[in-house]
Computed example of a mutant assay.
Amino acid sequence: MSKHLLCLALCFFSLKTQAQQSDFSNINFTKADAIANKYKGATLESLPILSYNLTSTLKTDVEKFRAIYRWVCANIENDYYAYLKNKKTRNKLKKDSLKLATWNAYFTQKTFKRLLKEQKTVCTGYAYLIKELANLAEIKCEILDGYGRTADVNIEELSIPNHSWNAVQLNNKWYLCDATWSSGIYDLNHYSFKYDYNDGYFLTDPNLFVKNHYPVNTKWLLTDTIIPITSFLNGPIVYPTTFKQAIVPTQPVTLHLEVKQNQEVIFLLKEGNPMDTSNITIEMTSGTYKTSVKPTINKNSDELLEVKHTFDKRGFYDFHIKLKEEYLITYTVKVEKK
Rank of each mutant, 00 (worst) to 15 (best):
K3Y: 12
A9W: 09
L10N: 08
C11W: 12
T17Q: 11
A19M: 06
D23L: 12
F29A: 07
T30Q: 14
I35M: 08
A36I: 03
K38Y: 03
K40V: 00
G41Q: 11
G41W: 05
E45K: 13
L47D: 03
P48H: 14
D61E: 14
E63Y: 02
A67R: 06
A74T: 09
N86Y: 08
N91S: 07
N91G: 13
K94S: 07
K95S: 15
K95N: 15
K110S: 14
K110Y: 15
K113W: 09
K113D: 15
E118W: 01
Q119C: 05
L129K: 11
L136M: 13
V153K: 11
L158A: 12
H163T: 14
W165G: 10
A167W: 06
V168G: 08
Q169Y: 06
N171G: 05
N171W: 02
K173H: 14
D178A: 13
W181F: 14
S183P: 10
L188K: 15
H190L: 09
D196F: 10
G200K: 13
N207G: 04
L208Y: 06
N212P: 10
H213T: 10
L221R: 12
T223I: 10
S231M: 07
F232L: 08
Y239T: 09
P240F: 05
Q251C: 08
Q251P: 00
V253G: 08
L255W: 11
E258Q: 14
N262R: 14
E264W: 03
L269M: 12
M275Q: 10
S278D: 12
E283D: 00
S286D: 03
T288H: 04
Y289M: 05
K294E: 07
P295H: 02
K299E: 05
S301E: 10
E303Q: 11
T310A: 06
T310S: 04
F311W: 01
F316D: 03
Y317E: 02
D318L: 04
I321N: 04
L323C: 00
E325H: 03
E326C: 00
T330N: 07
T332G: 00
V335C: 01
E336V: 11
